[in-house]
Design a protein around this nucleic acid. Structure first.
Lengths: 255, 255
DNA sequence: ATCCTCAACAATGCATACGCAAAGGGATTC
DNA sequence: GAATCCCTTTGCGTATGCATTGTTGAGGAT
């Protein structure tokens, strides 16, 4: 059943495995807002379902009844319901009474919305980082992510690049010190995960993005808040636009 | 115990009723994301609890057990639990096992976070509005809100001004066409509701804010996206900073 | 042939029941 | 008198049952 769904989805949008690798799922489960070790069954259900959805184990558009999911996860309906409520607020599924949950597909308009949100939030994060008393302190994770991106470009390894890109963006959001902002970035980042993995295979190596990241990081370390913000905003506008047009040109109706 | 907590909180921050008026609660219940007519008991519980919290019926810091709330709303624990999960994701309460839910107090740091988020999101909304093909179309709600603010300033009616301010900001977020952005603005707006009402009584009439709103609206109608964004960003930075320092100077530890 | 109506079924939303684990209180000991 | 340990109570997490409600399919009528 699993594999059937997987292969169906893979055929539809033309890819084998959407997830970067197993580690990525693992990492998300640990670093993400949701999966703090999952002490309770409801948390566990939330984390597992989220992982399933992000990794295309439950492809977009698929419908599942509460009882199906309960059976599948070996739980009763109660914790499943709680997990579904949370997934709904995460913007990953819609709950339609009598039809179970539906994994929300992403259309180009969603990606446009998401990139507009990131275009406003992330430059603010960069600005906040740059405005700290010691702006160059604590940037090691971002430095590491930048270097990893550069290495990945040199080695032409797209998956490694995507991992480093994720590390940079989420790291920046978390480091900026604004937990609400970080949560919002994380939320839309997860929503757009499938689309990002998809476009990764449809476009040339993101050389330009890599250098832009490096420049933003330099501006932050130099404490030039205005410059960091503006550089980041332009980066987001450009890359978001590119990504949306890749999706539109690729002809897939949704991801 | 309840009333004891209530009066304690009221005494601490020196006000009887935080809500603007009954209509405001009513309006929020209808326009808000949450309260779409509340067909199900869980939605109803969510809407009623949110209203209670925002209007200080459940003052910040108060703890309630699930069973208390169930008794109070005349429901069983099940829909209450679902409502609490949603309120937690709304950032209004924290759920601490064995101690029930706790209404999250706002400290100055929270307000800073919230204003940083608004400072990034709302200028984007203005920019998006200004970039529409016909930028001056559909701005009537914002025009009305601006006029209402100006009338309120002339009549020195702070509550009316706050209502109009809310109408302007939420209207702008909803009109911009980005539902994710609108949802995020709404979320932090609700989180900061109590603090906004509080500071309203602690500061002079917001004459400057009113004219700034008008200028932003003009820039939008003129289709000058860059100007609209920048004007709005400066407005938010200034007013957010003012609000935070009012709270800090007022000496209240939390709201 | 198509549309409408009615009935049966199925999924959900809610209430309730149960077991576990933690917190608080009381008692005992040092 | 204080601290620690044990017991009791109680709140929560989960499961399950029931009733409501919407959906779907079949049959009849136009």
């Amino acid at each position: 059943m699993h594999t059937q769904r997987d292969s169906l989805a893979a055929a539809t949008i033309g890819m084998e495995r959407m997830e970067l690798d197993q580690d990525a799922a693992q990492r998300r489960r640990c670093t993400g807002i949701a999966g703090r070790h999952a002490t309770t069954a409801a948390e566990l259900a939330h984390a597992r379902l989220k992982t399933l959805i992000l990794d295309n184990g439950l492809p977009p558009g698929s419908q599942c009844l509460e009882s199906e999911l309960a059976l599948r996860l070996g739980l009763s309906r109660t914790p499943i319901r709680e997990a579904l409520v949370r997934l709904q607020q995460d913007g990953l599924v819609a709950i339609t009474p009598r039809h179970g949950m539906r994994v929300l597909p992403l259309i180009a308009a969603d990606m446009r919305e998401i990139y507009e949100v990131l275009t406003s939030l992330e430059p603010m994060a960069a600005e906040l980082l740059a405005r700290r008393p010691d702006p160059s302190a604590g940037l090691e994770p971002l430095e590491a992510a930048c270097s990893a991106m550069e290495r990945a470009i040199a080695a032409r390894e797209q998956l490694a690049w995507a991992r480093a890109d994720e590390a940079f963006h989420l790291g920046l959001a978390e480091l900026c010190g604004n937990r609400r902002l970080a949560g919002m970035v994380m939320q839309v980042w997860e929503q757009s995960h499938r689309a990002r993995i998809f476009t990764l295979q449809q476009r040339p190596l993101p050389t330009r993005s890599t250098t832009e990241h490096r420049h933003v990081l330099r501006a932050i370390a130099a404490g030039d808040a205005e410059r960091a913000r503006e550089l980041y905003r332009r980066h987001r506008r450009r890359s978001g636009g590119e990504l949306v047009s890749i999706i539109e040109r690729s002809g897939v109706a949704w991801l």
